[in-house]
Nucleic acid binder design. Structure first.
Lengths: 247, 247
DNA sequence: CGCAGCCTTGACCATTATCAACGCTGGTGG
DNA sequence: CCACCAGCGTTGATAATGGTCAAGGCTGCG
């Protein structure tokens, strides 16, 4: 849930740069070499297939992951099977920081990928000796909390169209932060997953997508990628919250 | 949003104990005397009246508050006035930790109270020299994030009855953690505020409350306090999520 | 080529929002 | 001290958004 890397100083992108990959950790810019080596020493490189379960809600929270490739969905379930996806993770994001003794969520791979896995205990012990890393994590946690608040606004008060528009704007922003133009959006998840992230049903997601398509706001390239044709209109539909000012 | 105190070691309660109050800070158990004194040195004691605005969404995030008395609502607005309350803060809670340059939320006093105010810059500088405090804050941020995830599950997937039942269970838990029996619940907020916290309308909150009353699950003592008559039934209605196990 | 899973569309329905009226309550001023 | 008033809360009638159920189309893989 917590990404240590926003823009890697080596290549300016979110994804781990070659240097980071070599070190199996996306912690560019935060730690000096010695710290990196000590982190690497307590970590293991894992790969995972699509659909693989990384973390199960209720299990003892022994591990902590840094996603280095692929995508992951993090979700909570109600006893009757209703699901709320609380976030999608991509390369550079952390999984398992916000836990107590047991995981309060489950995590499954959306696609094949890889992660760097730490033992939480060793990690916490090391953390105490790396104040810079701790500060960086606190910042990340703050950002995560802000994102969660935005999602609460979305889930509690936005209409179906506003939710989907907000979601597409988020993906667009993410693409821009990763160095893209923010016009072509990849959707590595199914409609059901989008629905469970936005508090809707697949049918509603599908209908709203169609409406946006008919109105010419978006254009579907494939089922899992689209192009934003009218960014201004999409932004307006997303219902920018009262704290966002145009520059 | 982040409480430093869970159970104060001096008296076992959430509210700042007498020692904390004397120091104008609810950081019992985390810092040695010297750290407490240095924190005190960069803080000021403020009081506020009901309805007073402590933080306005979009303003530069210069301050950080530790609530020492009273209650506060934290919320986000959409341009057309729709409001989502992202949390209620009580004595011991922190306000303003999860911010970037500008506040991403507004905060208003529910009731008269008091807060200890820090300049964020001085605070961050001091934080770097108090690793124990930083670790404690990171833990707090984790708990906040978990709470936000639970609220996302509530807002995205729970029915009106489940939302209200969950809310009452939360207040009950809070009371128990503060040393109470968890049977008598205080509601220092209006129905409209409960509605804006649960993603409902005042009418729905009122109707659902009535239904719980008729079913004998709760009993209203006054408009702003009630008694839980059938805790087991309320817990069942709250739809405990799949990760909660009965002991 | 066929099948399974995902997606879309349609018809209908339910939950909750909206609109409206009225009751309660606490504070204020006559 | 009482009456009034404003704001909050409750209840009812109606409406709308989005959910449910159902059928059929697409797509990608074996």
């Amino acid at each position: 849930m917590i990404a240590l890397v926003e823009a890697c100083p080596n290549d300016g992108r979110i994804n781990p740069c070659s240097q980071c990959s070599a070190r199996r950790l996306s912690v560019c810019g935060v730690l000096a070499d010695e710290g990196l080596q000590r982190l690497s020493a307590i970590s293991e490189n894992d790969t995972f297939d699509a659909g693989e379960i990384l973390v199960r809600e209720g299990d003892p929270a022994t591990n902590l992951f840094n996603i280095t490739a692929g995508a992951v969905r993090v979700y909570k379930l109600l006893p009757d099977g209703r699901r709320q996806i609380v976030g999608f993770l991509f390369a550079g994001d952390f999984l398992g920081l916000a836990t107590g003794d047991r995981y309060a969520f489950s995590a499954e791979a959306l696609s094949a990928g890889a992660a760097c896995r730490f033992h939480k205990k060793a990690y916490r012990k090391l953390l105490a000796t790396l104040p810079d890393l701790e500060t960086a994590l606190l910042d990340r946690a703050s950002h995560e909390l802000q994102a969660a608040h935005n999602q609460m606004l979305l889930l509690g008060r936005k209409t179906a169209v506003e939710r989907l528009a907000s979601f597409l704007m988020d993906l667009s922003d993410r693409d821009r932060r990763a160095g893209g133009a923010g016009r072509i959006i990849q959707l590595p998840m199914t409609r059901a997953e989008i629905a469970d992230y936005l508090g809707l049903t697949t049918e509603t997601v599908s209908r709203v997508t169609s409406r946006l398509k008919v109105r010419g706001v978006i254009r579907l390239l494939t089922l899992h990628s689209l192009s934003i044709e009218k960014p201004a209109e999409l932004a307006a539909l997303a219902g920018l919250d009262a704290g966002d000012f145009p520059a």
